[in-house]
């Protein structure tokens, strides 16, 4: 009896959390007429790819996708370069104020993004970097770096120092030990951190909306939320676009989700 109740509850949870995702995908495959059928059909009677065709033949979609890719790639590259060096410094070298810096890394992540939007906007203004992609990269870095450094630091701290010293005893130089021993061990950490940063840059909305005003600089989130034509909201293409944007995120996310949960709850601020 208990087994059945729990089983039924489990399936209810399954349905509630899967339904919005399912409804997004199913709507994307429905032809226009079925979209407004009352009552709505749980399965499309005549599945079609027309909505995807509509999105893929939209020049604005491709331009936004290109912008998103450029900005995300630049953010990841820059963030990794900074975060890598910073995390090495924080994990391997003792210096004055290290603890304060670690605490600052967490604090900055907690500050509401709304509070950072105005100063970023007014700082980029005189530099002519508002409504421009380089401005986006710089401001995404302000959001992405603390988390990237924090996570990467956990990976570096996980490599035992003895291992490095053993390599040096066996005749490696400091750089050699680093390259042959440490780097391969933290490589998975670099990959995981790059993926977080990628997702963060790909999903950023609040700040982008504030900074970007001309459609040729739209990123995908802006494109999706401006997808309202003169005939009102066309939900078919909208859901097709949403599916296209969310799919790569979901795949990447599934790869690194484990590390994400650990980074947020277990601080690992070892002295």
């Amino acid at each position: 009896m208990r087994r059945w109740v729990f089983g039924a509850l489990g399936i209810a949870v399954l349905v509630i959390w899967a339904f919005p995702v399912y409804w997004m995908a199913v709507t994307a495959f429905k032809p226009g007429r079925e979209m407004f059928a009352v009552p709505p059909r749980l399965l499309p009677a005549n599945p079609t790819l027309a909505n995807f065709g509509h999105v893929l033949s939209d020049g604005e979609f491709w331009r936004s996708a290109q912008n998103s890719l450029i900005v995300a790639a630049c953010t990841v590259l820059a963030a990794m370069a900074f975060a890598f060096l910073a995390s090495l410094a924080l994990a391997r070298f003792a210096f004055r104020g290290r603890r304060a810096l670690l605490v600052a890394l967490i604090v900055v992540q907690m500050v509401p993004h709304v509070a950072l939007v105005i100063p970023i906007f007014l700082t980029l203004g005189p530099l002519r970097l508002t409504d421009a992609l380089p401005g986006l990269v710089i401001s995404y870095l302000a959001f992405a770096l603390p988390f990237a450094i924090w996570t990467l630091r956990g990976f570096v701290a996980g490599v035992p120092r003895d291992l490095e010293e053993a390599a040096m005893v066996d005749g490696c130089t400091r750089m050699g030990a680093f390259r042959r021993v440490v780097l391969p061990l933290i490589f998975p950490g670099l990959v995981a951190t790059s993926i977080y940063t990628l997702i963060l840059a790909w999903n950023e909305y609040l700040l982008t909306y504030f900074l970007i005003s001309s459609p040729e600089h739209y990123t995908l989130p802006l494109w999706l939320t401006h997808f309202i034509t003169t005939e009102g909201t066309e939900y078919g293409p909208l859901m097709a676009g949403a599916t296209l944007i969310a799919t790569p995120v979901a795949v990447f996310f599934a790869l690194v989700q484990r590390h994400l949960a650990r980074g947020l709850t277990a601080g690992a601020v070892k002295g």
């Binding site: 995702v21 997004m24 999903n203 909305y205 939320t225 944007i245 969310a246 599934a254």
Partner: peptide, 9 residues
């Protein structure tokens, strides 16, 4: 899967 869906989506 639900966790991975961006909030704007």
């Amino acid at each position: 899967l639900a966790w991975a869906v961006p909030s704007f989506v």
